[in-house]
Every structure is written in structure tokens, then in C-alpha cells.
Computed example of a mutant assay.
Amino acid sequence: MKSKFDVKVLSVQEIHELPDGWSGDDYKSIMELADFDDWDKIEESELKDYTIMTLQELDPEEAAAIVLGYKFQGLLTKGQIHNLVFEMMEENLWEEYQNISYHKELFNCAVMMKWAFPKKFPQTDAVKCVLEVNAYNQIGTNMLHNADKSLIARLIANGMNDHSVINRLFDDQVLNGPFPEAEHIVWQFDSEIQPEKTKFTIFSSWYWLRQMDDISNYTAETFSDQTNLR
């Protein structure tokens, strides 16, 4: 069952890294892979800086191979990683790589390499989009209170025209479901539930959300893949 929603676009902001894109455990693992001694004795507040300094002791290509190898262990071969090392110096792989399930982590890898070698790697750019959503009925309210990425991606798609990338590539998933690709279109989101509305803070790439920069408000009629909420 579809429900109707009023959607207000509160802000669309360019960002250059994701909240919690890298954790303390990630930093420690990178340093260990780069053969940095005593990585386990570093204060939590200094882990990022030490990781960057550790990578800077290496050639950019070697450092990138370590970072990519860590994030994509078991997913990419050494040959694929070797190719990506050189591609990521020139291209926005977080938008261009054909496997969209890798986009978020390719972005995080690009962020790390930009920190370590700012003159060698392109500027990273992603999107933080904040929506305020009101439901027309209780079913819609339940969807908002239990929102998943399929609902968020459909709410976004409903605001954009047929020429947007989401609607061109996934029109059937948006209209009829299921929509497993939403997991990789919406990189992450936070929700703030209020009595009469819900605010979503959504992180993704310009590749998916570019049209949202020109939209202020709209009405969406859509649903979630969670069948008990439809």
C-alpha cells in the first residue's frame, strides 16, 4: 500500500567526508597493514593523524593499495586494486565505478588518500540532504517512524523528474519494488522523529541526488519494502 507525504527540502549541502567514515579500529588496522610499530599504544584522539603520517611515509600508490585492500579485502583481486589505485588519482570512483555497492567505501578511501596526499588525489565531494516529511495518514506515519533506505530512496526519487539517474535506472523498483539498490544509493541516514513530522538527514553522492539541489518542496506517494508497513 502506498501512502502520501509532503516533503520539504530543508538543505542540500556539499560535504567532503562522511560522519564516522573511518573509525578508531580502522585507523589501527591501516597502520598495522603499513607496518607501523606500536599502533596499539596510540591515544584515540591521535589515531587519525598517525594514520595519515604513516601513509605519507609510503609512495602514494603503495598507500592507496593498502587502503583499498583493507576496505575491499575479499571483494577485489590484487589486479583490480592495482587498477583502482591509478584510476582514483584521476576519477571520482564513488560516482563512476560500475558496481554501486562499492561507491560508499570508494568515497571513504578517496577521503583517506586526499588527507594523506592532497596534491595527488582529487577533492572528494558528497551530499548531505535534509528533508522534513509529513505523512497524510497513520500508515504513512508508521513508515516514517520505521524508515528504511527503500523508503528514503523512493521519497527522493519522487521529488526528481524522469531524467534523474535514479528514475532512469530504477523506475520499476521505485514504482513497484522491491528496491535492493536503495541500500547503495542512500549511503547512510539519520532520522529525528517529531510529533507531526520526521526529519531525515541523508548522505549520498551528487550522482544520485544532484537534482535535489533545485527542489524546495513536493508531494510524494510511495511505500517501503518492509511489507508489514505497506
Rank of each mutant, 00 (worst) to 15 (best):
V174R: 04
K114S: 04
P178I: 00
I66E: 02
L93N: 00
M113R: 10
N137L: 09
K128W: 02
N142P: 04
W115D: 05
I152Q: 01
H82N: 14
L131I: 07
Q123T: 05
V133I: 02
N92K: 08
Y70K: 12
A110D: 04
I139T: 13
N108D: 14
A116Y: 12
A147W: 00
I166C: 01
G69C: 06
T124V: 15
H82L: 15
K149L: 00
L84P: 08
L68T: 12
L84A: 09
A126Q: 06
I166T: 12
W115K: 02
N83M: 10
Q80K: 11
G74R: 05
N99K: 10
L68H: 11
A116R: 13
V111S: 05
K119Y: 14
A182P: 08
M160K: 08
E181Y: 01
K128V: 03
F179P: 00
A157S: 08
H103Q: 05
D172I: 07
T77C: 02
D190S: 00
V127F: 07
P118G: 04
R154E: 02
V127K: 00
E62I: 13
D190T: 02
E87H: 15
M88F: 13
E87Q: 15
L155I: 09
A64T: 15
E183M: 06
I156V: 15
W115M: 06
E91V: 02
K120C: 14
S164R: 07
E183V: 01
L93C: 08
M112T: 09
N99Y: 12
R154M: 01
A126L: 07
A110C: 09
G140S: 04
R154A: 03
A64R: 13
Q173I: 11
K104H: 10
W187P: 03
L131E: 01
R168Y: 06
E132N: 09
Q173L: 06
E95T: 05
E96Y: 15
I185M: 03
F170W: 15
T141G: 01
N92W: 10
L106F: 06
V130C: 00
L131W: 01
A63K: 06
A157F: 06
I166H: 04
